[in-house]
């Protein structure tokens, strides 16, 4: 079970970047807390705070997401993220690769199931 846990952790780590970008495509603009909440609601591929924030920092540094601070109606100010044009281009290319990967995996898995 521990081996499975380690593999899952690696899988999450590799996919959280795409998950964040897909979320921003779907929602338009989200702050860090909301991103974490929504990813956690996905269940199996749960990505916690300690994973999401480092990835957000890298995406921001790479220019794939832009951020702005906004005062909340109540509570502390929030930093909202949105996808940039560069992020969209990257996501488009990443989606293409992802689809190809999933297709290959499906084929291989199907062969294995037979």
């Amino acid at each position: 079970m521990d081996e499975l846990g380690g593999w899952l952790a690696q899988l999450r780590k590799g996919t959280v970047e795409l998950l964040v970008l897909w979320l921003l495509v779907r929602e338009g603009e989200l702050h860090g807390y909301a991103i974490v909440q929504q990813l956690q609601s996905l269940g199996r591929l749960v990505a916690g705070e300690s994973t999401v924030y480092p990835v957000l920092k890298r995406l921001e540094a790479d220019g794939y997401v832009a951020a702005k601070w906004s005062e909340a109606e109540s509570g502390p100010p929030r930093k909202y993220y949105r996808l940039t044009d560069a992020g969209s281009e990257f996501l488009s290319a990443a989606n293409h690769e992802w689809d190809a990967l999933v297709e290959s995996m499906r084929e291989l898995k199907g062969a294995g199931d037979e």
Binding site: G32, Y33, V36, E49, Y53, K57, G75, P76, P77, R78, K79
Partner: peptide, 13 residues
């Protein structure tokens, strides 16, 4: 900025 963002997250949570 990192500290400010994490502070906001923790306070909200």
């Amino acid at each position: 900025e990192v500290v400010r963002e994490i502070r906001g997250h923790i306070e909200e949570a």
